[in-house]
């Protein structure tokens, strides 16, 4: 059945985020990143630029990394989402988070939520990437502190960790 909404309608948007069902209200023009941060209070996903350049708002949407500022909330109706809050298992960090911690892969941390998701998307496809492949994998994510060297190192280390854990943490997002 066709769905429609007029300009000022508040639409109920329901989607699964980090394995849990969330529901909130959005206008047709509400960007998904604003919806998850302001309506659902999941503020782990950051807004760095609002213009689709910085990648800080990157999330998994139905298994693919996307910039949540470049999608409308209403388009996420029924979608399966993973944000940075969904990476750790309780107090146990995800191996890619551990790798960023151990390799100084963040300084101010603002770009980190997006870097983690982009890094993970890459590793799910390519469990043992070269440095060039890692750099290409994060080309949609800007960092203004690290100069990327330690981020690349972190993703490389995460690849090792995830492989040695025998795919245990390579659960699909």
């Amino acid at each position: 059945m066709m769905k429609s909404a007029t300009k000022s309608d508040m639409i109920r948007v329901t989607c699964k985020i980090n394995g849990k069902e969330y529901s909130g209200l959005a206008e047709p023009r509400t960007l998904f990143v604003h919806f998850i941060r302001d309506e659902l209070n999941l503020t782990g996903t950051h807004i760095g630029c609002d213009t689709g350049h910085c990648g800080a708002c990157t999330i998994f949407m139905n298994g693919k990394s996307v910039k949540s500022c470049m999608v409308l909330a209403i388009q996420a109706q029924g979608a399966d989402i993973t944000t940075v809050e969904g990476l750790a298992d309780g107090d146990k960090l995800h191996p890619i988070q551990e790798a960023f911690w151990e390799n100084h892969g963040l300084q101010c941390g603002y770009c980190t939520p997006g870097m983690l998701i982009s890094g993970l998307f890459l590793l799910q496809r390519n469990p043992d990437p070269t440095e060039d492949e890692i750099r290409r994998g994060i080309e949609g994510n800007l960092c203004r502190c690290t100069g990327y060297v330690n981020i690349v190192k972190s993703i490389k280390a995460a690849a090792k960790k995830m492989q040695s854990e025998g795919g245990k943490s390579a659960r699909s997002m």
């Binding site: 066709m2 769905k3 429609s4 909404a5 007029t6 300009k7 000022s8 206008e27 047709p28 023009r29 509400t30 960007l31 604003h34 409308l72 209403i74």
Partner: peptide, 9 residues
């Protein structure tokens, strides 16, 4: 934020 619009799917 974009200007308001009607939305059809």
């Amino acid at each position: 934020t974009p200007k308001k619009f009607d939305y059809y799917s």
